[in-house]
Amino acid sequence: MKPVAAIVFKDIVIEMRSKESLSSTTMFGVLVLVIFNFAFEPSSLERALIAPGTLWVAISFAAILGLNRSLAMETDNDCLQGLLLAPLSRGDIYLGKVASNFTFMIIAELVILPVFVIFNNLKFNVQFLEIAAIAALATLAIASVGTILSTISANTRMKEVMLPVLQIPLTVPVVIAAVDATGRVLTGETAEISSWLYLLAGFSIVYLTVSYLVFEFAVEE
């Protein structure tokens, strides 16, 4: 477990130094929310229908940006090889990067979510906490599959451009679950949320396990 923590800590130190990843992903997420307000101009009635969608488009696009940055850091100067030379399994490297990607995405969401609440004139009450809980689970799901996909895309000639092509189709179930669960929180029909949460948790567990096992094929020459 210690090397996993070391990877997260290292990424945090690098981010504090360079301030590249968080500022750009957060700004991007907020901008997507702003753009959607121009694009739809929802009245207060339609807001509950459209708002969850805008939130999750913002978060999943911002995530793609952050995932690319996170991996670019490792491929710059071939640092990934340094990790591969260390006495930890390929799977642990994967878990370390998932943990660090998850942490950064959550930090970005700490800004994006309140902005979302303000833009949509929602309240900072128990609803907000429920949305935050959904966001945490969905973020884990996105980080689990996004970390290995960003490693794959970094190997292609298109590099960063390839990641959305691979990631968007695979995260369709996550986005559907997150959008519908968020919508239900906003409309107060919270009865069926638990099955969405199970789906998100199941998705994370399955992808964490499969990726842990096959990560070596994604990083080795």
């Binding site: 210690k2 090397p3 923590a5 070391a6 990877i7 800590f9 290292k10 130190v13 690098i14 130094r17 360079s18 850091m73 710059d76 100067n77 071939d78 640092c79 090889q81 340094g82 990790l83 030379l85 260390a86 006495p87 930890l88």
Partner: peptide
């Protein structure tokens, strides 16, 4: 293992780089 690539993080200083690898090696 040493090649002409150093596998060092450009945003970290020498101490932080070595400290990180030290942690990886337990």
């Amino acid at each position: 293992f040493l090649s002409h690539n150093t596998y060092l993080y450009r945003d970290l200083n020498p101490v932080e780089n070595l400290r990180f690898f030290g942690r990886l090696y337990g």
